[in-house]
Design a protein around this nucleic acid. Structure first.
Lengths: 113, 113
DNA sequence: AAATAATATAGAGATATCGCAAATTATCAA
DNA sequence: TTGATAATTTGCGATATCTCTATATTATTT
């Protein structure tokens, strides 16, 4: 598998720009950089290697102060753009950053913008 | 003057993301990377060191295929975000990339996103 | 099977963006 | 000063985004 061939294209880049064109969504992505520091101690932050760093929707919701549905929609928008990944475990849905996409996005900015 | 202190803040970054959340505006920024290759030979591309690489609105308009007013609005949106700079010379308004902002934006992505 | 909890989806009103045509402003040339 | 050219601003209908409440779905617990 060629690890250097994952460069995103213009279309996907625009989807990412849209996802980031909202301060709260940027904040969510930033919070997820350090879940242990940015969420309450009793938050559901996954520790297992399985989906390490994943945070559940309601914990994100209580940080951003939006309604449950808006939080959910913002997260699925971030998911569609590829900036985060998601895993459902039981009744919880965990979201965490997709560092691979973020790295390719950075690369795109440097080369194409 | 401290050249390392120009890092953009979250708010300005969101303005840049908004400016880039449209394929045509991304195209404009990309075209302006190499004006000589991307515009017609008779286009008004500034050569003087004064505002080297600046391209006038009507030449940009004929490349992107939008109306004159939309092109003008898109360019002033890019201007507000800081991604381009502008200079009026006679009856023409020239736009070119603001490489300093773009560099700081790249840096922002790497550090803050 | 029913109640509870977490999340997603649907529906809606307010606001913003998209992109055009028309009107206005600015500059130049005759 | 009149006319032509370049660009900006204004006004508008169409579409998209924002963010909520209400409802549906999925999973757990009793």
């Amino acid at each position: 598998m060629n690890l250097e061939s994952n460069m995103i294209n213009d279309e996907q880049a625009v989807e990412i720009f849209k996802a980031l064109s909202n301060q709260i969504r940027v904040n969510i992505l930033q919070m997820l950089k350090e879940p242990d520091n940015n969420f309450s101690p009793q938050a559901h932050v996954i520790k297992e290697k399985d989906f390490d760093g994943g945070v559940c929707v309601s914990d994100i919701r209580s940080k951003v102060g939006l309604s449950q549905s808006t939080t959910s929609q913002y997260l699925s928008l971030l998911l569609q753009s590829g900036l985060v990944e998601m895993k459902r475990i039981g009744q919880w849905t965990y979201y965490r950053r997709n560092e691979e996409t973020i790295k390719q996005f950075e690369k795109y900015i440097g080369l194409k913008i």
